[in-house]
Amino acid sequence: MINTIYIEDEVSNHPRVVEMTQRFPSAARVPCERYTAVFNLKGQNFRLQKHNPSLMLARKFDNFMLATPQGYGIGGLHNYYFSHMLNCIYDCRYCFLQGMYRSAHYVVFVNYEDFFGAMDEKLVLHPQENVWFFSGYDCDSLALEPVTGFTALLFPFLESRPRAMMELRTKSTHIQPLLGRDSLPNVIVAFSFTPAEISSQFEHKVPSVAKRVDAMAKLAAGGWQLGLRFDPLIYEEDFESHYQKLFRQIFERVDSCAVHSVTIGPFRMPRGFFRNMVRLYPEEALLAGTFRNRDGVVSYNADREAAMLNFCIRQLKEYVAPEIIYSCAPHSRPNLAGDSSDGLSVAI
């Protein structure tokens, strides 16, 4: 429940702001000049704020579409990500957002049209070619959809732009806006998973694995293309049996023909973010495991990482074609037999 809504002066009369605030009639409305005056302040504590985050309604001015980091992609040449929201209603203990931001408040940039305009610019920049757009990079794409209503505008936009390929990445089971309409061939609804044993311990407030699998099955039946994201892979002694069980659980219900792509990525985190997370959660079991600082990135050691990736790839190949399995970890590729390391995301 949202108790407080910060509203940038500039968007206070924006119709979307009026609509969103009406959803929370008893929330205090706090005018502010810029959301950054609240969100970026020093001396805040992300963990404390996570107990009761506020909503911030703001306008984004620039950098609507950003090039994805090396190795991020699902087969396309031109990859961009965007964030019409910052932060997430869920609370996964491995989430990099808690290491990256000072505040846990949910920010929604209400000028959606500017994001669409920036997508059009990228389509013009790459004529005749597909351009991939990744939503859900600094947030969960669908979790706050009942408030944002973003897809209601996004889908008609995509309908008329078949070259604009969109990944919506989520752990949410809020799929009604998708089930209530025809599927789109240029939209991939990608669900992230860790095994149930890990999810129940580290993915707070996230729908169970079973519920997410159920949502995927419904979307597949509705003709939507699906993505599977096993990123980050989390190590523990029972890693193999837990991941094996997870894959079985998914593919027992989800037709592999509906799966557009599968990505796997080992746990990896910029060192500064990891430090912040440890500061917030020093007692956290997930962060107490064995990690190495590899060129400023905290991850498992190279051997362990390679073993995890190889195991998952072997297992996944039993369910889907190798051409649709992608790795998100450039530095682990040399460990994978027969793989290139050209900095692009490649099928295994």
Binding site: A28, P31, C32, L41, Q44, L48, Q49, N52, S103
Partner: peptide, 16 residues
């Protein structure tokens, strides 16, 4: 201006 984070929810009305 300062914005005290509204983490505690004790049912009080909030006002600037």
């Amino acid at each position: 201006n300062w914005y005290p984070p509204q983490v505690v929810n004790a049912g009080l009305e909030r006002t600037p």
